[in-house]
């Protein structure tokens, strides 16, 4: 499935619900000693999964965000694995494309287990 479905999402005036507040682990081995969390506030324009949330941030807010972008969209390939904190619960190494997000959620996204290449991209 293509991630780029025509128009720039920012041109879409439809808002379905409260924005999602997300803290994402950022780490660049060339410049950072320690990883840090960066906060994004993402408008809820369409039904989203955790993966499509990352796409939305990359497309509309921050082109420097690194995450694995080759994906099947079907929960098969596992390239979108990450660790998620949501509703007071931590879910390790889950496939982010299979996790739906409701409007107004606050989540934290960290990389899956493995050596970090950058941000959410790991060797596994």
């Amino acid at each position: 499935m293509s991630h780029i479905l025509g128009e720039d999402p920012r041109d879409n005036p439809v808002i379905l619900g409260e924005p999602i507040i997300v803290d994402i682990l950022r780490f660049d081995p060339e410049t950072d000693i320690e990883p840090h969390l960066q906060r994004y506030v993402v408008p809820y324009r369409r039904r989203m999964s955790v993966f499509t949330l990352l796409r939305e941030i990359y497309e509309c807010q921050d082109g420097t965000l690194a995450f694995r972008n080759q994906q099947c969209g079907r929960g098969i390939c596992g390239t979108c694995r990450c660790t998620i904190e949501m509703d007071g619960e931590t879910r390790k190494n889950v496939k982010s494309c299979t996790i739906p997000l409701e409007p107004g959620k606050h989540i934290v996204i960290r990389p899956a287990n493995g050596k970090i290449i950058r941000d959410l991209v790991v060797e596994f």
Partner: peptide, 12 residues
């Protein structure tokens, strides 16, 4: 033009 840094795993 892609974002200039970081270079590692630069999707753009």
């Amino acid at each position: 033009k892609a974002v200039g840094t970081p270079k590692i795993y630069n999707i753009e």
